[in-house]
Computed example of a mutant assay.
Amino acid sequence: MIEVKNLSYAIHNKQLLQDVNLTIQKNSFTVIMGANGAGKTTLLQLMAGSLMPSSGTIAIDGSNIASLSPEMLAKKRAVLSQRYHLPFTLTVREVVMMGRYPFFRNQPHAVDVAMVNHAMQQMHVTHLADTLYQNLSGGEAQKVQMCRVLAQIADASESQKKILFLDEPVSQLDVKYQYQLMQIAQSLTRQHVTVVAVLHDMNLALQFADTLHFMKSGQLLYSLQQPVDIDAALIKNIFDVHAIKLEQQNLDHPFIYFQPE
């Protein structure tokens, strides 16, 4: 479980988050949404321990994140950011193996190699294993980075629960791989992994999320424990766009149709 209490964050006298309170249940798929600049990525980075809050607390399974060492954090959670730049040359296999760095010294063990191979198989990039990462397309690089975080949390178990933070994980993927990645992320919640994602595609979120949270101007305004409860008024307030909620026969999630002004 992740518990966020009275969380605020400011930098260079600019308030990016203000008094955010949020509880994320273990083994759930939580999606955070909002317009550009709402504070979504900042909140994700704070929960992942990549940033330190100006005030407030974040606890993972009852432990204040500030008390966890970088090594402990690396073994407990994985983070897929929007952009990655590697200043040195590595193959795809070497990049994916980076996800296992917290778990071995000097040389990977057989189990680390197996986890890396499985992650590449999951994302259908095994054929790229010996390709230089710098030569990949944007979509290929995004799939490889997903492999890296999958390898990092591959040893999740009842006694070693993991957290996966995803910041716009499907932004450069075509439709097929968007759904593949989301299906993999959803399946992880049945394997002792809590998934927290920032997404822009509302219909994608409605299909996969257990819980939806909506941010605006650095504040958390709405939390839907039942995503089907979303309505046009909420969408208008958060995104300033008119929308129609369409119920879909034989499906357990609605479809949102956005109307031009």
Score class of each variant (00 low, 15 high):
52 M>V: 13
52 M>E: 15
53 P>W: 07
58 I>R: 04
58 I>V: 14
58 I>Y: 10
60 I>Y: 06
63 S>E: 12
63 S>G: 05
63 S>R: 04
66 A>N: 13
68 L>I: 09
71 E>G: 00
71 E>L: 15
73 L>N: 12
74 A>S: 14
75 K>T: 02
81 S>W: 09
81 S>N: 13
86 L>N: 00
86 L>Q: 00
87 P>Y: 02
91 T>Q: 04
92 V>L: 02
93 R>P: 01
95 V>P: 03
95 V>I: 14
96 V>C: 09
96 V>Q: 12
97 M>A: 11
98 M>E: 07
98 M>R: 02
99 G>V: 03
100 R>H: 03
101 Y>D: 00
101 Y>H: 09
102 P>E: 12
104 F>E: 12
104 F>D: 12
106 N>D: 10
107 Q>K: 12
108 P>Y: 05
109 H>V: 02
110 A>F: 01
111 V>D: 05
112 D>A: 08
112 D>T: 10
112 D>S: 07
114 A>N: 07
115 M>N: 11
119 A>K: 00
119 A>Q: 06
121 Q>S: 15
122 Q>C: 14
125 V>M: 06
126 T>I: 09
132 L>C: 10
135 N>Y: 02
135 N>E: 15
136 L>I: 02
137 S>G: 05
139 G>T: 01
139 G>D: 00
139 G>S: 02
139 G>P: 01
140 E>Q: 08
141 A>Y: 01
142 Q>W: 04
142 Q>F: 03
142 Q>S: 03
144 V>Y: 01
144 V>W: 00
144 V>H: 04
144 V>K: 07
145 Q>I: 00
147 C>K: 01
148 R>V: 10
148 R>M: 12
150 L>D: 03
151 A>E: 04
152 Q>A: 11
153 I>Y: 05
156 A>E: 04
156 A>I: 03
157 S>Q: 08
157 S>M: 00
158 E>Y: 13
159 S>M: 03
160 Q>D: 15
160 Q>R: 06
162 K>I: 04
163 I>A: 04
164 L>I: 05
165 F>S: 08
165 F>Y: 11
166 L>K: 02
168 E>Q: 12
170 V>N: 04
174 D>W: 08
174 D>T: 10
178 Q>I: 06
178 Q>Y: 03
179 Y>M: 10
180 Q>V: 05
180 Q>S: 10
181 L>D: 11
181 L>N: 12
